[in-house]
Design a protein around this nucleic acid. Structure first.
Length: 488
RNA sequence: CGGGGUAUAGCGUAGUCCGGUUAACGCGCCUGCUUUGGGAGCAGGAGAUCGGGAGUUCGAAUCUCUCUACCCCGACCA
C-alpha cells in the first residue's frame, strides 16, 4: 500500500475510502454492504452519541428499547410507509437450520414461519403498536422516547458510514395531544441537530424542509440538516419528521381529551446515524487524512516521546508523566505513544487519525523545560514551557474546534451560489456546489431538473425568501426558494 | 434485475494472448543488530493447494467447459 493518500481534489472517493481504512475507523463486514466499526471509529461515534444523548435528556426525552423484529403486517398499515421501505427489507422466513448430507447446513423447510418477520428498517410501526397500549388519556401525553439502535436497509450500493446495509442511529418517537405541539417538537429537534452538527462536529448546515418527493415515507413534513462535503456535494445529516396523525390512524392510537372527546394522537420521529461520522471525515479531512473536532475526538492530544537511548527514555518518561496527569485532570483526553515506531512514522500515523494536537517531547525539551505542540488543523508548531502547555492546551483545543467550523463554513459559503437562470444552475452543478434559486413548487420541475442535471432539491431553507423570484426551470413565479445540489 | 469486467501470499499487483523446471515483485508480518526531532537501514525468515469442479495434454496460473464470488456502470437510498 502506498504511503501517500490518493489526491483529495482529483480523486475524492478513493481518498475517502483510504482515510476510513488507514485511520482505523471501519471496514466492510463479511456480508456485502455491512460495516465493522473498529475501536477508534467507535470511540468517535460514541463521543457523538454521548453529546446528543445529553442534549435530548436535557430536553425531557428518555431512552427505551424496542425489538429488532417486526411482524410483516405492521409495515403495511401505513400505505406510504410500506411503499417507501418495501424494496429494501431483510425478511426472516425460517427459524431453524439442519444438517444436510449434500449441502452441509440448509434451512429447515419445516421451520417456515406463518407470518414472515421484518428486520426493522425504522421503528415507527413497532413503536406505535406499543403506544396504542400505553396511551389512553391526555394525561399520558406527551410521550418523548428515544432509542439507540441498529436498523437494516438492504441497499444496492454501499459506502462506509454513508450508506451501509445495517447502521447505528438514534430514533426519537414522540406522541402529542395537539398538532401545534408536534410541530414544535419537530422544530426543536431540528435545532438540536443543528447544534450537534455545528457545535460538536464543526459541520455547518442548512436547516430546511424537504419537498414532497424527498420527504420520509409516512410523514406530513420532513425537516433536515444539509451539509456540504469537501467535494461540494450535499449530505443529508439528520432528519426530523412531523408525522401528523398518519401512524395514529394506522395503529388506531386515540386519547381522551380533558372535555372527554376522543382524538387521534399527533406524532413526530427523528434520527441521526453513524453517517455523521462520514460527514466529519468528508467535511474536515485533508491531504494528510482526518482532522477531528476536539469535542468529539477520541484522543485530543497525542504525546510523542523521542529518545536515543534508555537513559533518555527514562528522563522523557519522568518528564511527561506529571504533565500528562495535569492535562488529564483538566479533562483533556491524552494518549502517549510509546510504540517502537520511528517519530516520523508516528507523526504521520496520528495525523492520519486526525488527533487535534501533537505534543513532542525529546531530550532537548527535557533540558529546556519545553514541549513542542503542533496543531493538526493549521500545522503550526509552537514551543511552550511545561506550565504554559497545561493552560494553553485547552485553549488551543477550543481554537481548533472553532477554526474547523469557520473553515468549513467559509468553504460552503464560497460554493453556495444564488442564481437566476437555468444555465447558471447547470454550470454550477457541473463544477460542484449548492445553488439557491426559485422553484415553482411542482414535482414535474423537480424531476426534470434531476433528470437533466442529477441535482436534487436538498431542502427549502428555513431562511428562504421567495419574494419576486421565478422558477429557473419553468420561468413561472417561484413558490419557494430552494437549494439544489448533487447529493450523496 | 439489465450491460461490462475481475479472481494469483494479509493487502496491492506481474505472469495468462503464445502451456514447460523451484510461480515473481512491492507493502505488510516475524527474528537479530544498528537506529529514533517528519513515513529508518542492513541481514535473515515465514507466508500461495494461482476462486471451486471437470476436461485437453507427457506437462496447466496459462487452453476448453462449468459453477461460485466479487467489482464497475444504471434503477433504490439516512
Amino acid at each position: 500500500m502506498s504511503k501517500r493518500l490518493p489526491n483529495r481534489d482529483t480523486d475524492f472517493s478513493a481518498w475517502y475510502t483510504q482515510v476510513v481504512n488507514r485511520a482505523g475507523l471501519a471496514d466492510y463486514g463479511p456480508v456485502k454492504g455491512t460495516m465493522v466499526i473498529k475501536p477508534y471509529g467507535f470511540q468517535l461515534w460514541d463521543n457523538i452519541k454521548e453529546s446528543f444523548d445529553r442534549m435530548i435528556k436535557a430536553t425531557g426525552h428518555v431512552n427505551a428499547y424496542f425489538p429488532l423484529f417486526i411482524p410483516k403486517s405492521f409495515l403495511a398499515k401505513e400505505a406510504e410507509h410500506v411503499e417507501g421501505f418495501a424494496k429494501e427489507c431483510a425478511v426472516v422466513t425460517h427459524t431453524r437450520l439442519k444438517a444436510d448430507e449434500a449441502h452441509g447446513i440448509v434451512v429447515d423447510p419445516e421451520s417456515k414461519l406463518e407470518e414472515e418477520i421484518i428486520v426493522r428498517p425504522t421503528s415507527e410501526t413497532v413503536i406505535w403498536s406499543m403506544y396504542k397500549k400505553w396511551i389512553q388519556s391526555y394525561r399520558d401525553l406527551p410521550v418523548l422516547i428515544n432509542q439507540w439502535a441498529n436498523v437494516v436497509r438492504w441497499e444496492m450500493r454501499t459506502r462506509l458510514f454513508l450508506r451501509t446495509s445495517e447502521f447505528l442511529w438514534q430514533e426519537g418517537h414522540t406522541a402529542h395531544a395537539t398538532a401545534a405541539e408536534a410541530q414544535q417538537e419537530t422544530l426543536d429537534i431540528l435545532e438540536l441537530y443543528r447544534q450537534l452538527a455545528e457545535d460538536y462536529l464543526a459541520v455547518p448546515v442548512f436547516t430546511g424542509v424537504k419537498t414532497d418527493s424527498e420527504k420520509f415515507a409516512g410523514a406530513d413534513k420532513t425537516y433536515c440538516i444539509e451539509a456540504m462535503m469537501g467535494d461540494k456535494r450535499a449530505l443529508q445529516a439528520g432528519t426530523s419528521h412531523n408525522l401528523g396523525q398518519n401512524f395514529a390512524k394506522a395503529f388506531d392510537v386515540k386519547f381522551q381529551t380533558k372535555d372527554n372527546q376522543e382524538e387521534l394522537v399527533w406524532a413526530t420521529s427523528w434520527g441521526v446515524s453513524t453517517r455523521l461520522v462520514g460527514a466529519v471525515i468528508l467535511t474536515h479531512g485533508d491531504e494528510k487524512g482526518l482532522r477531528l473536532p476536539p469535542k468529539i475526538a477520541p484522543i485530543q492530544v497525542v504525546v510523542i516521546p523521542i529518545s536515543r537511548n534508555e537513559e533518555q527514555e527514562k528522563a522523557v518518561k519522568e518528564y511527561i508523566e506529571p504533565l500528562a496527569n495535569s492535562l488529564e485532570s483538566a479533562g483533556v483526553r491524552v494518549h502517549q505513544d510509546w510504540s517502537d515506531n520511528s517519530p516520523g512514522f508516528k507523526f504521520n500515523e496520528w495525523e492520519m487519525k486526525g488527533v487535534p494536537l501533537r505534543m513532542e517531547v525529546g531530550p532537548r525539551d527535557v533540558e529546556k523545560g519545553n514541549v513542542v505542540v503542533a496543531r493538526r488543523d493549521t500545522s503550526e508548531k509552537s514551543f511552550l514551557s511545561k506550565a504554559e502547555a497545561v493552560t494553553q492546551v485547552p485553549e488551543l483545543l477550543d481554537e481548533i474546534q472553532k477554526g474547523l467550523f469557520d473553515q468549513a463554513k467559509q468553504f460552503r459559503d464560497e460554493n453556495t451560489h444564488i442564481v437566476a437562470t437555468y444555465d447558471e444552475l447547470k454550470q454550477i452543478i457541473k463544477t460542484g456546489g449548492f445553488v439557491r434559486c426559485g422553484w415553482d413548487g411542482t414535482d414535474e420541475t423537480e424531476a426534470k431538473v434531476k433528470e437533466e442535471t442529477k441535482a436534487t432539491i436538498r431542502c427549502i431553507p428555513t431562511d428562504e425568501n421567495p419574494e419576486g423570484l421565478t422558477c429557473v426551470h419553468s420561468g413561472k413565479p417561484a413558490k419557494h426558494e430552494v437549494i439544489y445540489a448533487k447529493a450523496y
